[in-house]
C-alpha cells in the first residue's frame, strides 16, 4: 500500500497528528471510514459534526483507547498505530473525556498528582513524595489554573459537575504536553466557566496544538484556526472557521438545523 516515497513523505512532513486511511468498525457498524487528516504542531483545530459522526471515535483512535481497524496513526512522525495508550501519552499526547473519567475516591490534589506522576519517572516508587519535590509545585499550579484550590483536598466524587469538568482539563495539561485532544470540554459548564475555559485554551503556549470537539460554536470557533467537518464517519469539509461558517452546505446540515 504505502510506498517508500510515501512513508518518507509522511515522516518528513513533521505533522503533529497524521492519520492515513483510518477506519474503525464496531461489529458491522462503520464508525470511521478512510479518514486522512493531518494537523501541524501548534495548530488548533475543531472537529465538528452531529452526534454519531465519529468524532469521539476519531479521538479514541488517536489515543489508542480503541485501535483503528485499518490505517496508520502517526504522532510527530512516529508510527504509533499499535502502541498502547500510555506509550502515546508519554510521548506528549494528552486528552480529556466527554464524560469525566476521574478517580472518584481520591482527592482533587491526588488526581492531579497522578497525572503529573504518570508522565514523569518513578511511577512505581514506594517512597512517598516530599512536599518540597518539584512535582508538588506543578500540582499546585495546575490546581490553581482550573480554580480548584478551595476543594483541593476534597474527594472528587463529592465535587459538582462543573468542577469535575475543570479537573478533567487539569489532568490533560499535566507534564509537558505537545498535543491535546479535548472532547467537549465545555459540556455542562456555566457561562462563567466557559469564559475561563476559553481563557485557558487561548493562553496555552503557542507550541501546544490541540483538536477540540465542541457543540458550543461560540467556544469552538473562537479558539481554533481551522475546522474539520465530519459526517457519518467521514470527513467532508476542511477550512478556516470563517469559511466553514459561510459554507451553505455546512449551514444546512449543522449550523442552521441546530446541533445535538
Amino acid at each position: 500500500m504505502s510506498s517508500i516515497a510515501e512513508r518518507l513523505a509522511a515522516a518528513g512532513t513533521g505533522n503533529a497528528i497524521e492519520l492515513r486511511g483510518v477506519s474503525r468498525l464496531f461489529g458491522a457498524l462503520r464508525a470511521l471510514t478512510d479518514i486522512t487528516l493531518s494537523v501541524r504542531p501548534g495548530e488548533r483545530r475543531a472537529v465538528l459534526g452531529s452526534n454519531g459522526a465519529g468524532k469521539t471515535t476519531l479521538l479514541n483512535c488517536v489515543t489508542g483507547d480503541f485501535p483503528p481497524t485499518s490505517g496508520t496513526v502517526r504522532f510527530f512522525g512516529e508510527d504509533v498505530t499499535v502502541l498502547p495508550p500510555h506509550e502515546r501519552i508519554r510521548r506528549g499526547l494528552r486528552r480529556t473525556y466527554q464524560i469525566s473519567l476521574l478517580f472518584q475516591r481520591l482527592t482533587v490534589r491526588d488526581n492531579v498528582y497522578l497525572a503529573c506522576r504518570g508522565v514523569s519517572r518513578s511511577r512505581f516508587s514506594l517512597v512517598r513524595t516530599r512536599a518540597s519535590d518539584p512535582i508538588m509545585q506543578s500540582v499546585a499550579e495546575l490546581v490553581a489554573l482550573v480554580h480548584l484550590e478551595d476543594v483541593a483536598d476534597r474527594l472528587v466524587g463529592e465535587l459538582a459537575h462543573g468542577q469535575q469538568r475543570q479537573l478533567e482539563i487539569a489532568l490533560a495539561l499535566a507534564g509537558a504536553p505537545r498535543f491535546i485532544l479535548f472532547d467537549e470540554p465545555a459540556a455542562g459548564l456555566s457561562p462563567n466557566e466557559r469564559r475561563d475555559l476559553v481563557a485557558i485554551l487561548t493562553a496555552l503556549p503557542a507550541h501546544i496544538g490541540y483538536i477540540i470537539i465542541e457543540h458550543d460554536m461560540d467556544v469552538a470557533l473562537r479558539v481554533v484556526e481551522s475546522v474539520t467537518m465530519m459526517h457519518n464517519g467521514r470527513i467532508f469539509k476542511e477550512g478556516a472557521p470563517a469559511e466553514i461558517e459561510a459554507d451553505p452546505e455546512v449551514q444546512e446540515l449543522y449550523l442552521g438545523g441546530g446541533h445535538g
Partner: peptide, 27 residues
C-alpha cells in the same frame, strides 16, 4: 506507608478508573 506513595496512589487510580490511568501515562 505505601498507600500514599506514588505506587500506592497509582494503584488506587487503577482501582477507580483503569482506562483513565492508561490515558495519563500508566501501564
Amino acid at each position: 506507608y505505601v498507600s500514599r506513595s506514588p505506587f500506592g496512589l497509582a494503584l488506587q487510580g487503577v482501582r477507580d478508573n483503569p482506562r483513565r490511568m492508561e490515558a495519563i501515562g500508566y501501564n
